[in-house]
Write a protein that binds this DNA or RNA. Structure first.
Length: 544
RNA sequence: GCCCCCAUAGCUCAGUGGAUAGAGCGCCAGCCUCCGGAGCUGGAAGCACAGGUUCAAGUCCUGUUGGGGGUACCA
């Protein structure tokens, strides 16, 4: 539709011998009395042409040539908007479009089959996933789903660090708990992981091997058993949320494959490093980052996390991904410029990398803030949260706010079942439609019989048709911005418009023709709602 | 000190530079002879502050204030 309108405007501009320096923008009107689409072209041209926008608008409208039937009316409104009113006939075709495409309605070819890698969660296996990880998990998975929907070939990847200090401490924590089980009075320090799960891990070692590893604090069994147990728990939690990764990439393999040495060697060869105080520094400042950074420590003979991070990202490029999406929490926002700088130093173009930074989750319980720290173990785990409120509510809560906003997760509110939870509003709309359709079947309406869509013309009905028509562009918008929250806002609007329609108009009436048309309409709403929810990984229930 | 994010209704949040800023919760007043009242209708109530850019600013820029996160040879 916007194509047609743009064509009309372009035609008029040609007649008027105006060459616009600005792109012609056509938007959906926000208010019904401003038509369905609107253009501000006259106002944009006012300055270069040095003429009043109203006059320009009038001339454009006068010179559009033949107006297609699909456009019912064109109005000019102060201070120079050109408003287009679309014929109901055009609006009504959305319904048949949805019914034909079914579960594919809304897909786009934005990505043109390009390979995309979405890296998210990437929590080190030192403890159960926290509520904070949950936000990232849901965000990342939703972004991945949206990209797939828009024609990308998407892989989900989890990167974890199994080579550094944190894992050593994890092993030590397990050892100390093991010693305690053996009856010694070893104590954990603040540095260690305090969680109950460490005791379980220690117990499993003790049950299997007794005191065989006593006095062997550095034995790999502690670290390995802990890592394995924690990872099994993490995978399980993610699975419950409906999140499945294509690959888990571990830091150790970068060392094993010699990639760390290789990157460092090239850095040195390119003169991107220097030595200072016995450490090896990267001239990150020369490649767009704020400050130079240490790559190789002097106090211990090992790399800082930046070096493997850079090597890891190089593999993403080498593995042939056209789009690389990194999802980080706000606490990591300072690290990605170093990675970008590192890749630039290695000679790569980094335009294909999109870094999405999400803000923190503030967890409140009975009005009190709960600080989340894996080490202190005074947190609510993601898994506990899912158990209490269900997967759909968890997913919805994490995605219903923009990623740049701090997310206030009120446990008390989330735990209450019922109408406080906005996700039910969407699911209810879907279930309600299913109920109508069941009812229709009982009354003898066939599932595949189509009605005369021309009968769909009341105010509330046209509003619903309009919302349905927006779905495709919303999907594309989400694909570009990678902000799934736009979709939740849309689905809320869709549900609201449907509920309003429902209260005003009966779907199944004595008028068979009208009933058939309205059944088509609600079937279309059901499909769009279901497609939208599936992009967020949320169920669309038939009954509630 | 420096860097990043945020500030919209009593609370939690929407709002692709456009024309009268929207929801939910809470509060007040209504709507079931009829497809699911987990719904619908109406009411009170708001863009932190000060400049600037623009025909047009909640939206962009600068500053101020307030909150969160960074700024490590932890990740």
């Amino acid at each position: 539709m916007t194509d047609k309108i743009e064509h009309l405007i372009q035609y008029a501009l040609k007649v008027l011998l105006i060459e616009p320096e600005v792109p012609i923008s056509i938007e959906r009107s926000r208010r019904p009395d401003h038509g369905h689409f609107t253009s501000n072209i006259a106002m944009l041209l006012a300055k270069p042409l040095r003429r009043a926008p109203m006059t320009i608008a009038e001339e454009i409208v006068k010179n559009m040539g033949k107006i297609p039937e699909s456009i019912e009316k064109i109005e000019i409104k102060n201070p120079g908007f050109i408003n287009f009113f679309i014929a109901p006939k055009i609006y009504q075709t959305v319904v048949s479009d949805v019914l034909i495409k079914q579960q594919d309605f809304g897909r786009s070819e934005l990505g043109k089959g390009a390979k995309a890698l979405v890296e998210f969660v990437s929590a080190n296996p030192t403890g159960p996933l926290t509520v904070g990880h949950g936000r990232q998990a849901v965000l990342g998975d939703s972004v991945a789903r949206i990209l797939e929907w828009n024609g990308y070939q998407v892989d989900r990847e989890y990167y974890y660090n199994d080579a550094g200090r944190q894992m050593r401490i994890l092993g030590q924590s397990a050892y100390i708990r093991y010693r305690q089980l053996l009856g010694y009075d070893d104590q954990l320090t603040d540095e260690h992981y305090q969680g109950e799960y460490i005791i379980d891990i220690a117990r499993s070692i003790q049950e299997k091997y007794g005191d065989r590893f006593n006095n062997q604090p550095d034995h790999e069994i502690f670290r390995n058993t802990a890592e394995e147990a924690v990872f099994a728990d993490i995978r399980n939690t993610l699975k419950v949320l409906g999140i499945v990764f294509n690959s888990f990439y571990n830091e150790q393999s970068l060392y094993d494959d010699g990639l760390i040495d290789d990157v460092l060697k090239r850095f040195k060869a390119y003169g991107a490093t220097y030595e200072k105080d016995g450490a090896i520094w990267f001239r990150a400042g020369d490649f767009g980052a704020a400050d130079d950074r240490v790559l190789w420590k002097s106090v211990v003979d090992e790399a800082t996390y930046r070096l493997p991070d850079i090597a890891y990202h190089e593999t993403k490029i080498k593995r042939g991904y056209d789009l690389i999406v990194d999802i980080f929490g706000a606490d990591h926002h300072a690290t990605y410029p170093d990675v970008i700088a590192g890749l630039k130093a290695l000679g790569y173009n980094t335009d294909s990398i999109r870094v999405l930074i999400h803000q923190f989750v503030t967890l409140t319980r009975s009005g009190e803030k709960v600080k989340m720290s894996t080490r202190k173990a005074n947190y609510v785990t993601l898994s506990e949260l899912i158990d209490e409120v269900g997967k759909d509510v968890v997913r919805y809560f994490f995605i219903m706010r923009g990623m740049k906003s701090h997310l206030n997760f009120d446990l008390a509110l989330a735990k209450t079942e019922g109408d406080e939870n906005p996700v039910f509003y969407l699911q209810y709309a879907h279930a309600r439609i299913c109920s109508i359709l069941r009812n229709a079947e009982v009354k003898g309406f066939k599932n595949d019989s189509r009605g005369d869509l021309n009968l769909l013309r009341e105010e509330e009905t046209l509003a619903l048709l309009g919302i349905l028509g927006e779905f495709e562009e919303i999907c594309i918008l989400c694909g570009k911005t990678m902000e799934p929250q736009t979709l939740t806002t849309y689905l809320q609007k869709l549900a609201a418009t449907f509920h309003k329609f429902y209260t005003v108009h009966r779907v199944i009436t004595k008028d068979k023709e009208l009933s058939r048309a309205r059944l088509d309409l609600v079937r279309a709403v059901k499909i769009v709602m279901s497609n939208g929810l599936s992009l967020l990984g949320i169920n669309a229930p038939e009954r509630m």
